[in-house]
Amino acid sequence: MTQFVNLTIAGLTIGAVYALVSLGVVVIYRISRVVNLAHGAMGIFTTFVFHYEFNQRLGWPVGVSFVATLAVGAVLGVVVERLFVGPVRPDGILTTLVMTVGVLLILTELTVQFWGPNQPVIASIFPDRTIRLAGTGVTVHQLGTIGCVALLGAGLYLLLNRTRYGRAIEAIAEDPGAARIVGLPVRLITTSVWAIGGATAALAGMLYIHLNTLEQISLTFVLISSLVAAVLGGFNSLLLAVVGSLAVGVAFSLAQGYVSTPGVGDLIVFGTLLAVLLAFRPDQAAALESVSEY
């Protein structure tokens, strides 16, 4: 029983990290109609900056590094949008997808190029304590991660669905030309949304790296996050992206824990993803509308 609880909590935690990335993916999709496959990689890159540059080289206190990293994440989001994704968006969905793949490769490889291939052992941004819960020990990091998701999820939900800013985002996504005519600051809003997305990715990265010591970084990160946002939210629903990410995290964790065959978790994810997509066929009007151009 304890193992089950442990695995579930671990699963929720990793799921929470995926949820954070998913949230960013959804937010970016909402403004740009782009599936940012590079989102996870953006997070990892900024986290390496956090660890190697701010923590180690500059020796800043964790709190300062944390905030600085969020800023770096935001800037990275803006850079990716203005230099890479934005210019190719008119060329169609497939081209944009290929571009995000390119960005992913660049960021992933830059981390190795700059800081070497080894996974750093990063101290958590939370204090290192364990709390007894449900008959087992839960670290503050785990609780904190889940808490972050709850907060961020709620915050983004409110921002996107209950404010004029959120409505502006919808308008811009649907028809940027019309939005411009009506007087909406399209460039500013687009940039700010990508900044938010980038910062979210940075947060996810900082939480993820502490948890993850064995897996090859960023790849599972990339996969699961975009998968879950796709499957359940149609890239649009924040709530479903979070719920789905948590579910995937728990399922993955339980599968790894109870089944000895390696890679069963991945198989289950693939199978479930396929089954859900085929059964529900999420609304992909936006995905289909444009003519594919290379």
Binding site: V35, L97, S226, A230, D266, L267, F270, L277, L278
Partner: peptide, 26 residues
């Protein structure tokens, strides 16, 4: 076979998951 019912980005993501499943399980 799934490609008959899925289009665009969704199919691409399925290929991504397929690749991962092959790498780590198959």
């Amino acid at each position: 076979i799934p490609s008959l019912r899925l289009r665009g980005v969704y199919l691409t993501i399925v290929t991504l998951a397929f690749g991962a499943a092959c790498e780590r399980w198959l």
